[in-house]
Design a protein around this nucleic acid. Structure first.
Lengths: 134, 134
DNA sequence: TCTGAAATCAGTAATTGTTACTGATTTCAT
DNA sequence: ATGAAATCAGTAACAATTACTGATTTCAGA
């Protein structure tokens, strides 16, 4: 594997991601990091997000909306996706790791893990809908 | 909503999907349906797969490999994705519906459901790797 | 059974998210 | 300081999907 050298751009990307709790997409990262470094290119953003995800410093989230989201919090936790506004947020919940064993019980093969995300309506959208119906 | 009219192409697509247990992609559907109707277009396949998924007659699976898979079995069940060969298969397992409640316990908003898929190495790939290492 | 409006079609162009390629620049061990 | 390797910016390529076109099919009502 190639040695990883330091780069200002990669730092900017990671630093930006650490300030955010909303799991931005590559494009959002690009637009924001560009404010600190107007010359950074979209390709660099994609390359470094991929690289950071590969070495485990960030997490790539595929929540099924066709766009990858990124999360600087690599601790095991689950995500919620709002069907109304598309926002992605962390869930504070007890472990559900047990489902991997449940799945593997009658399976011919090896189950390494699972990917789970929850969907529904976030608090803000729920209140908005409630006030509109009033 | 627009009235849904009958179409031979849509029937072909659904009928083909019902014969398959391997959750084919739009492209695979296209290649197969074309054998019965050589003039069908890829756009028609995409449009009808989307349409059928919207009205709930089939299920769209986003397993994170960048390609949508489709399943004529709309009953609740879980899927496994092989990290080696990329195949997608059904899992026979006990219900894990309880995780939705676990997730909703401390959440400000409404959780409608969850999407989970498991990954690892399928039986065939596991045996193949074992024989190669021998 | 006609008729015509709406749905659907085939074909293709456009869009989107992402990855690969280019030659220039930066990093850092020596 | 130096030079090889990593990284960069910019852009082209790519695959999957969606949108648009004018032609064809469907089917409710006359």
């Amino acid at each position: 594997m190639a040695t990883l050298k330091h780069s200002r751009q990669r730092d900017l990307i990671k630093d930006f991601l650490m300030t955010r709790k909303d799991h931005p997409t590559a494009d959002v990262v690009y637009m924001n990091v560009r404010q600190q470094d107007p010359n950074i290119s979209l390709g660099t953003v994609y390359r470094n997000l991929t690289l950071l995800a590969e070495i485990g410093e960030i997490q790539r989230l595929r929540v099924g909306d066709g766009v990858d989201h990124f999360d600087a919090d690599t601790s095991p936790h689950y995500h919620f996706v709002c069907s109304e506004c598309g926002c992605v947020m962390d869930l504070k919940m007890d472990s559900i790791e047990g489902i991997t064993e449940i799945a593997g019980a009658n399976f011919d093969g090896y189950i390494a893990g699972h990917i789970t995300y929850f969907y529904g309506v976030c608090g803000d959208c729920a209140r908005l809908k409630a006030s509109q119906n009033a």
